[in-house]
């Protein structure tokens, strides 16, 4: 599965997200920011989770659960579109 991040969405190194289309701002933690960046690069959800498991000390089930929750949040805020 792949998610599209709108172009008017800018995220800074500090994890501050400005969605220029709506004027809303958000704050993300380090890993949240990384996930958005990987989505912006066009990676699929599967490759994102593979990458995260390589980098972080986390088991697959926990990550899947948390990723699912995170994407639900992004959808709720209308920050991603499913492709």
């Amino acid at each position: 599965m792949k998610y599209h991040i709108p172009e008017s969405l800018a995220i800074s190194d500090s994890g501050f997200l400005f969605f220029a289309r709506t004027g809303e701002t958000f704050t993300l933690n380090q890993i949240g920011k990384e996930i958005i960046r990987l989505m912006q690069e066009g990676l699929s959800l599967d490759s994102i989770s593979t990458k995260l498991i390589e980098t972080y000390d986390v088991d697959e089930i926990t990550l899947q659960k948390d990723l699912h929750d995170f994407i639900t949040q992004l959808q709720l805020h209308k920050l991603v579109e499913e492709q």
Partner: peptide
């Protein structure tokens, strides 16, 4: 600019 607001919000 948004960066001022960003700085106070995140830092």
């Amino acid at each position: 600019d948004m960066s001022v607001f960003e700085k106070i919000t995140t830092m």
